[in-house]
């Protein structure tokens, strides 16, 4: 018998879900709800007149908010293809790694999404740590997946990799080999 990684986690790496169309079309209201929190001063996101005369041709959404278009609605639940992170979460939860915290994010922005256009995305599982890591919050596994966002012409808007840590909660320990977020 191998390790948890070899027996039950590694097989899921590289799997990708079929394309999913985001619920909300890129719209100035959702963009405004982003920039009012970030206090973003870029006219490309909020000045229609400036944006029309710019290289963008219309208001565009900040690249940093690309993942927002993929967020699941609160109600009703959408019947979506299973994301490739689900089986890994299931294994880790069954082994007591019940709590989760985000640790890293990386976005490559190719093109900004234009208002009025829907965003389509896929999710691919790219990495699972091959052993347990001792962290400040508890023993943990790190899971990395990658979003890929495209516009209606199939042009790549950007990719985003995202790493989270699943851990067995325990009182803070003194010796940690990974900083815990």
């Amino acid at each position: 018998m191998g390790t948890l990684y070899e027996d039950r986690l590694a097989e899921h790496i590289g799997k990708e879900c079929p394309p999913i169309e985001a619920v909300d079309t890129v719209c100035p209201e959702t963009i405004r709800h982003w920039i009012e929190i970030m206090e973003d001063r870029n006219p490309a996101y909020s000045d229609a007149e400036w944006a029309a005369g710019s290289r963008f041709g219309s208001i565009v959404a900040p690249g940093a908010m690309m993942q927002v278009w993929s967020m699941a609605p609160h109600w009703p639940q959408r019947d979506l293809p299973e994301l490739p992170i689900a089986p890994v979460d299931e294994v880790l939860i069954s082994e007591g790694f019940t709590d989760v915290v985000a640790t890293e994010q990386s976005q490559q922005i190719h093109k900004l999404a234009k208002i009025g256009e829907p965003v389509t995305f896929t999710v691919k599982l790219t990495k699972v740590s091959d052993r347990e890591h001792k962290t400040r919050l508890g023993v943990a596994y790190f899971v990395t997946f990658e979003y890929r966002f495209t516009d209606p012409r199939g042009d790549l808007l950007g990719t985003q990799s995202f790493t989270y840590m699943r851990y067995r909660p325990e009182p803070e320990s003194e010796s940690a080999d990974e900083p815990a977020a």
Partner: peptide, 23 residues
Amino acid sequence: NGLMASFVTNWCGPDWDVTDISL
């Protein structure tokens, strides 16, 4: 991530494109 991206673009202005942001 959004706060960091806006920190950078509020400095450089709209004539620059952010092509990568990692944290």
